[in-house]
Protein backbone atom coordinates (compact mmCIF):
# COMPACT_ATOMS: atom_id res chain seq x y z
CA UNK A 1 0.00 0.00 0.00
CA UNK A 2 2.63 2.47 1.16
CA UNK A 3 4.90 1.67 -1.73
CA UNK A 4 2.29 2.31 -4.44
CA UNK A 5 1.77 5.72 -2.82
CA UNK A 6 5.45 6.52 -3.18
CA UNK A 7 5.41 5.40 -6.82
CA UNK A 8 2.32 7.47 -7.48
CA UNK A 9 3.67 10.70 -6.02
CA UNK A 10 7.07 10.18 -7.62
CA UNK A 11 5.30 9.75 -10.95
CA UNK A 12 3.25 12.88 -10.35
CA UNK A 13 6.35 14.89 -9.46
CA UNK A 14 8.19 13.62 -12.55
CA UNK A 15 5.19 14.51 -14.69
CA UNK A 16 5.01 18.05 -13.34
CA UNK A 17 8.78 18.45 -13.54
CA UNK A 18 8.69 17.26 -17.15
CA UNK A 19 5.88 19.69 -18.01
CA UNK A 20 7.78 22.57 -16.42
CA UNK A 21 10.97 21.60 -18.19
CA UNK A 22 9.13 21.52 -21.51
CA UNK A 23 7.97 25.10 -21.03
CA UNK A 24 11.55 26.18 -20.40
CA UNK A 25 13.18 24.26 -23.24
CA UNK A 26 10.74 24.20 -26.13
CA UNK A 27 10.35 27.42 -28.07
CA UNK A 28 7.71 26.26 -30.54
CA UNK A 29 4.17 27.07 -29.33
CA UNK A 30 2.34 24.27 -31.05
CA UNK A 31 3.14 21.45 -28.55
CA UNK A 32 1.64 23.56 -25.77
CA UNK A 33 -1.47 24.42 -27.74
CA UNK A 34 -2.10 20.75 -28.51
CA UNK A 35 -0.88 19.46 -25.14
CA UNK A 36 -3.15 21.83 -23.26
CA UNK A 37 -6.20 20.32 -24.94
CA UNK A 38 -5.10 16.78 -24.12
CA UNK A 39 -4.42 17.69 -20.48
CA UNK A 40 -7.79 19.39 -20.26
CA UNK A 41 -9.48 16.24 -21.50
CA UNK A 42 -7.58 14.13 -18.96
CA UNK A 43 -8.98 16.32 -16.18
CA UNK A 44 -12.48 16.11 -17.66
CA UNK A 45 -12.39 12.34 -18.17
CA UNK A 46 -10.92 11.62 -14.74
CA UNK A 47 -13.46 13.87 -13.01
CA UNK A 48 -16.34 12.51 -15.05
CA UNK A 49 -15.46 8.97 -14.00
CA UNK A 50 -15.84 9.75 -10.31
CA UNK A 51 -19.60 9.85 -10.83
CA UNK A 52 -19.97 8.17 -14.24
CA UNK A 53 -17.52 5.35 -13.60
CA UNK A 54 -17.38 4.61 -9.89
CA UNK A 55 -21.08 5.25 -9.25
CA UNK A 56 -22.35 4.35 -12.72
CA UNK A 57 -24.39 7.53 -13.11
CA UNK A 58 -23.78 8.61 -16.69
CA UNK A 59 -23.55 12.38 -16.87
CA UNK A 60 -24.18 13.83 -20.33
CA UNK A 61 -23.72 17.31 -18.94
CA UNK A 62 -19.93 17.63 -18.96
CA UNK A 63 -20.38 20.61 -21.29
CA UNK A 64 -22.56 22.35 -18.69
CA UNK A 65 -19.84 22.09 -16.07
CA UNK A 66 -17.05 22.94 -18.48
CA UNK A 67 -18.96 25.91 -19.87
CA UNK A 68 -19.79 27.22 -16.43
CA UNK A 69 -16.08 27.02 -15.64
CA UNK A 70 -15.33 29.11 -18.72
CA UNK A 71 -17.96 31.69 -17.86
CA UNK A 72 -17.06 31.90 -14.19
CA UNK A 73 -13.58 32.88 -15.33
CA UNK A 74 -14.95 35.30 -17.93
CA UNK A 75 -17.24 36.98 -15.43
CA UNK A 76 -14.60 37.29 -12.71
CA UNK A 77 -12.02 38.55 -15.15
CA UNK A 78 -14.31 41.14 -16.61
CA UNK A 79 -15.79 42.26 -13.30
CA UNK A 80 -12.69 42.29 -11.10
CA UNK A 81 -9.72 41.36 -13.24
CA UNK A 82 -9.20 38.40 -10.89
CA UNK A 83 -5.98 36.44 -11.49
CA UNK A 84 -6.03 32.93 -12.95
CA UNK A 85 -5.80 30.97 -9.66
CA UNK A 86 -8.80 32.88 -8.31
CA UNK A 87 -10.73 32.18 -11.51
CA UNK A 88 -10.01 28.47 -11.18
CA UNK A 89 -10.85 28.29 -7.48
CA UNK A 90 -14.09 30.17 -8.05
CA UNK A 91 -14.97 27.85 -10.93
CA UNK A 92 -14.40 24.85 -8.67
CA UNK A 93 -16.75 26.36 -6.08
CA UNK A 94 -19.38 27.05 -8.73
CA UNK A 95 -18.98 23.50 -10.07
CA UNK A 96 -19.39 22.05 -6.59
CA UNK A 97 -22.59 24.03 -6.09
CA UNK A 98 -23.87 22.99 -9.50
CA UNK A 99 -23.05 19.38 -8.76
CA UNK A 100 -24.86 19.63 -5.46
CA UNK A 101 -27.96 21.20 -6.99
CA UNK A 102 -28.04 18.81 -9.93
CA UNK A 103 -27.46 15.89 -7.58
CA UNK A 104 -30.23 16.87 -5.19
CA UNK A 105 -32.67 17.29 -8.04
CA UNK A 106 -31.78 14.22 -10.03
CA UNK A 107 -29.85 11.58 -8.13
CA UNK A 108 -33.00 10.04 -6.76
CA UNK A 109 -33.74 9.10 -10.35
CA UNK A 110 -32.28 5.93 -11.67
CA UNK A 111 -29.74 5.65 -14.50
CA UNK A 112 -31.28 6.86 -17.74
CA UNK A 113 -33.46 9.55 -16.14
CA UNK A 114 -30.45 11.07 -14.47
CA UNK A 115 -28.66 11.15 -17.83
CA UNK A 116 -31.59 12.87 -19.53
CA UNK A 117 -31.77 15.42 -16.72
CA UNK A 118 -28.10 16.30 -17.22
CA UNK A 119 -28.75 17.03 -20.90
CA UNK A 120 -31.69 19.23 -19.95
CA UNK A 121 -29.53 21.10 -17.43
CA UNK A 122 -26.91 21.77 -20.11
CA UNK A 123 -29.50 23.30 -22.42
CA UNK A 124 -30.99 25.46 -19.67
CA UNK A 125 -27.64 26.80 -18.53
CA UNK A 126 -26.44 27.48 -22.07
CA UNK A 127 -29.65 29.36 -22.82
CA UNK A 128 -29.25 31.47 -19.70
CA UNK A 129 -25.67 32.42 -20.57
CA UNK A 130 -26.63 33.14 -24.18
CA UNK A 131 -29.05 35.74 -22.87
CA UNK A 132 -26.63 37.31 -20.44
CA UNK A 133 -25.32 40.48 -22.10
CA UNK A 134 -22.64 41.25 -19.53
CA UNK A 135 -20.57 38.22 -20.54
CA UNK A 136 -21.12 38.80 -24.24
CA UNK A 137 -24.38 36.99 -24.93
CA UNK A 138 -24.64 34.85 -28.04
CA UNK A 139 -21.96 36.81 -29.89
CA UNK A 140 -19.30 35.93 -27.36
CA UNK A 141 -16.66 38.03 -25.70
CA UNK A 142 -13.07 38.95 -26.47
CA UNK A 143 -10.54 38.76 -23.64
CA UNK A 144 -7.15 40.41 -23.31
CA UNK A 145 -4.59 38.22 -21.55
CA UNK A 146 -2.73 39.92 -18.70
CA UNK A 147 1.05 39.80 -18.49
CA UNK A 148 2.52 36.37 -17.91
CA UNK A 149 4.08 35.40 -14.58
CA UNK A 150 7.67 34.15 -14.20
CA UNK A 151 9.14 31.55 -14.76
CA UNK A 152 6.99 31.41 -17.91
CA UNK A 153 7.65 33.64 -20.86
CA UNK A 154 4.45 32.85 -22.67
CA UNK A 155 0.83 32.65 -21.52
CA UNK A 156 -0.03 29.40 -23.29
CA UNK A 157 2.98 27.71 -21.71
CA UNK A 158 1.76 28.83 -18.34
CA UNK A 159 -1.76 27.57 -19.02
CA UNK A 160 -0.26 24.27 -20.11
CA UNK A 161 1.50 23.94 -16.78
CA UNK A 162 -1.60 25.01 -14.84
CA UNK A 163 -3.65 22.35 -16.60
CA UNK A 164 -0.91 19.83 -15.74
CA UNK A 165 -1.39 20.79 -12.08
CA UNK A 166 -5.11 20.22 -12.44
CA UNK A 167 -4.40 16.79 -13.92
CA UNK A 168 -2.40 15.84 -10.84
CA UNK A 169 -5.11 17.21 -8.56
CA UNK A 170 -7.91 15.36 -10.36
CA UNK A 171 -6.01 12.10 -10.55
CA UNK A 172 -4.98 12.28 -6.89
CA UNK A 173 -8.58 12.90 -5.84
CA UNK A 174 -9.93 10.13 -8.03
CA UNK A 175 -7.27 7.71 -6.84
CA UNK A 176 -7.99 8.57 -3.24
CA UNK A 177 -11.71 8.01 -3.71
CA UNK A 178 -11.19 4.70 -5.48
CA UNK A 179 -9.05 3.35 -2.67
CA UNK A 180 -11.09 4.65 0.24
CA UNK A 181 -14.38 3.65 1.85
CA UNK A 182 -16.04 6.06 -0.53
CA UNK A 183 -14.91 4.08 -3.55
CA UNK A 184 -16.11 0.86 -1.97
CA UNK A 185 -19.50 2.42 -1.25
CA UNK A 186 -19.82 3.81 -4.78
CA UNK A 187 -18.89 0.45 -6.28
CA UNK A 188 -21.48 -1.25 -4.08
CA UNK A 189 -24.25 1.13 -5.07
CA UNK A 190 -23.27 0.81 -8.71
CA UNK A 191 -23.71 -2.95 -8.42
CA UNK A 192 -26.97 -2.82 -6.49
CA UNK A 193 -28.40 0.23 -4.82
CA UNK A 194 -30.87 -1.48 -2.51
CA UNK A 195 -28.39 -4.11 -1.39
CA UNK A 196 -25.90 -1.31 -0.72
CA UNK A 197 -28.41 0.59 1.41
CA UNK A 198 -29.24 -2.56 3.35
CA UNK A 199 -25.52 -3.08 3.98
CA UNK A 200 -25.26 0.35 5.56
CA UNK A 201 -24.17 2.46 2.59
CA UNK A 202 -25.71 5.96 2.60
CA UNK A 203 -26.27 5.83 -1.14
CA UNK A 204 -27.79 9.27 -1.69
CA UNK A 205 -25.11 11.02 0.32
CA UNK A 206 -22.31 9.19 -1.49
CA UNK A 207 -23.79 9.96 -4.90
CA UNK A 208 -24.10 13.61 -3.92
CA UNK A 209 -20.48 13.70 -2.78
CA UNK A 210 -19.37 12.14 -6.06
CA UNK A 211 -21.48 14.63 -8.02
CA UNK A 212 -20.06 17.60 -6.09
CA UNK A 213 -16.42 16.51 -6.45
CA UNK A 214 -16.83 15.57 -10.09
CA UNK A 215 -18.60 18.85 -10.85
CA UNK A 216 -16.00 20.97 -9.05
CA UNK A 217 -13.13 19.40 -10.99
CA UNK A 218 -14.86 19.60 -14.38
CA UNK A 219 -15.70 23.25 -13.81
CA UNK A 220 -12.13 23.99 -12.74
CA UNK A 221 -10.88 22.36 -15.94
CA UNK A 222 -12.94 24.81 -17.96
CA UNK A 223 -11.75 27.97 -16.21
CA UNK A 224 -8.34 28.41 -17.94
CA UNK A 225 -9.99 27.87 -21.30
CA UNK A 226 -11.17 31.49 -21.49
CA UNK A 227 -7.58 32.75 -21.38
CA UNK A 228 -6.39 29.95 -23.62
CA UNK A 229 -8.70 31.02 -26.45
CA UNK A 230 -8.78 34.72 -25.43
CA UNK A 231 -12.40 34.45 -26.38
CA UNK A 232 -15.56 32.77 -25.13
CA UNK A 233 -18.96 32.17 -26.66
CA UNK A 234 -21.81 29.98 -25.39
CA UNK A 235 -22.04 27.60 -28.32
CA UNK A 236 -18.39 26.58 -28.08
CA UNK A 237 -18.13 26.70 -24.27
CA UNK A 238 -21.20 24.49 -23.90
CA UNK A 239 -20.42 22.40 -26.96
CA UNK A 240 -21.90 18.90 -26.88
CA UNK A 241 -18.52 17.71 -28.09
CA UNK A 242 -17.12 18.08 -24.55
CA UNK A 243 -19.80 15.78 -23.16
CA UNK A 244 -19.39 13.18 -25.88
CA UNK A 245 -15.59 13.20 -25.97
CA UNK A 246 -15.29 13.00 -22.19
CA UNK A 247 -17.70 10.10 -22.00
CA UNK A 248 -15.97 8.30 -24.87
CA UNK A 249 -12.52 8.78 -23.33
CA UNK A 250 -13.63 7.44 -19.96
CA UNK A 251 -15.38 4.42 -21.41
CA UNK A 252 -12.63 3.59 -23.87
CA UNK A 253 -10.01 3.87 -21.14
CA UNK A 254 -12.15 1.93 -18.68
CA UNK A 255 -13.72 3.24 -15.51
CA UNK A 256 -12.88 0.49 -13.03
CA UNK A 257 -9.53 2.12 -12.21
CA UNK A 258 -8.49 5.75 -11.98
CA UNK A 259 -5.87 5.19 -14.69
CA UNK A 260 -8.52 4.22 -17.26
CA UNK A 261 -9.77 7.72 -18.10
CA UNK A 262 -6.18 8.99 -18.14
CA UNK A 263 -5.24 6.42 -20.77
CA UNK A 264 -8.47 6.98 -22.68
CA UNK A 265 -7.97 10.75 -22.78
CA UNK A 266 -4.36 10.41 -23.91
CA UNK A 267 -5.18 7.91 -26.66
CA UNK A 268 -8.28 9.67 -27.96
CA UNK A 269 -7.03 13.19 -27.32
CA UNK A 270 -3.79 12.55 -29.20
CA UNK A 271 -5.63 10.89 -32.06
CA UNK A 272 -7.96 13.86 -32.30
CA UNK A 273 -5.10 16.34 -32.32
CA UNK A 274 -3.27 14.39 -35.03
CA UNK A 275 -6.42 14.13 -37.16
CA UNK A 276 -7.15 17.84 -36.78
CA UNK A 277 -3.70 18.66 -38.09
CA UNK A 278 -3.50 16.07 -40.84
CA UNK A 279 -7.07 15.82 -42.12
CA UNK A 280 -9.81 17.93 -40.56
CA UNK A 281 -11.63 18.39 -37.30
CA UNK A 282 -14.79 16.88 -38.78
CA UNK A 283 -13.10 13.50 -39.08
CA UNK A 284 -12.64 13.60 -35.28
CA UNK A 285 -16.29 12.99 -34.63
CA UNK A 286 -16.35 10.04 -36.99
CA UNK A 287 -13.26 8.46 -35.45
CA UNK A 288 -14.65 9.01 -31.97
CA UNK A 289 -17.90 7.31 -32.93
CA UNK A 290 -16.21 4.35 -34.55
CA UNK A 291 -13.82 3.82 -31.64
CA UNK A 292 -16.65 4.01 -29.13
CA UNK A 293 -18.70 1.42 -31.00
CA UNK A 294 -15.67 -0.86 -31.35
CA UNK A 295 -14.97 -0.71 -27.64
CA UNK A 296 -18.54 -1.07 -26.49
CA UNK A 297 -18.83 -4.23 -28.60
CA UNK A 298 -15.38 -5.77 -28.21
CA UNK A 299 -14.11 -4.45 -24.87
CA UNK A 300 -16.89 -3.05 -22.71
CA UNK A 301 -14.49 -2.71 -19.78
CA UNK A 302 -12.22 -0.46 -21.84
CA UNK A 303 -8.46 -0.60 -22.12
CA UNK A 304 -8.15 -1.22 -18.37
CA UNK A 305 -10.40 -4.25 -18.76
CA UNK A 306 -8.28 -5.57 -21.63
CA UNK A 307 -5.12 -5.20 -19.58
CA UNK A 308 -6.68 -6.98 -16.61
CA UNK A 309 -7.93 -9.84 -18.77
CA UNK A 310 -4.51 -10.19 -20.35
CA UNK A 311 -2.81 -10.26 -16.94
CA UNK A 312 -5.22 -12.83 -15.56
CA UNK A 313 -4.63 -15.07 -18.58
CA UNK A 314 -0.89 -14.81 -18.11
CA UNK A 315 -1.15 -15.57 -14.40
CA UNK A 316 -3.29 -18.61 -15.10
CA UNK A 317 -0.82 -19.69 -17.74
CA UNK A 318 1.99 -19.56 -15.20
CA UNK A 319 0.01 -21.15 -12.41
Amino acid sequence: MKRTGIYFWTGAALFLGGALLMTQLIGNQYPFFAGYVILQFIVLAVSWSILGGYAGYVNFGTAAFFGMGVYTAVFLFKATGAPLPVQIAAAAAVGALMGFALGLLTLRMQGIFFSIATIAATIIIETAITNWRYVGGAAGIQLQRPAVTAPFDNYVEMLFFVQALLVVLAVAVSRYIQRSWMGRGLQALKDDELAAECTGVPTLRLKLMACVISGALMCAAGAPSAMYLQYADPSSAFNLNYSVSTLAMSLIGGTAHWAGPVIGAIVLGTTQQLLTVTISSEVNVLVLGVMLVLFVVAAPEGIIGLVRRFRRKRNEGEG
Binding site: W181, G185, A188, K190, D191, D192, A195, A196, T199, V201
Partner: peptide
Protein backbone atom coordinates in the same frame (compact mmCIF):
# COMPACT_ATOMS: atom_id res chain seq x y z
CA UNK B 1 -24.49 -9.78 -4.27
CA UNK B 2 -22.17 -6.95 -5.32
CA UNK B 3 -21.20 -8.71 -8.52
CA UNK B 4 -18.11 -6.71 -9.41
CA UNK B 5 -16.53 -7.57 -6.04
CA UNK B 6 -14.94 -10.57 -4.42
CA UNK B 7 -16.60 -12.31 -1.50
CA UNK B 8 -14.23 -10.57 0.89
CA UNK B 9 -15.01 -7.16 -0.60
CA UNK B 10 -18.74 -7.82 -0.31
CA UNK B 11 -18.29 -8.22 3.42
CA UNK B 12 -15.95 -5.25 3.64
CA UNK B 13 -18.80 -3.02 2.46
CA UNK B 14 -20.73 -3.96 5.58
CA UNK B 15 -17.66 -3.59 7.75
CA UNK B 16 -16.76 -0.21 6.25
CA UNK B 17 -20.20 1.27 6.66
Amino acid sequence: PFRSMTVAENLMVGLDF
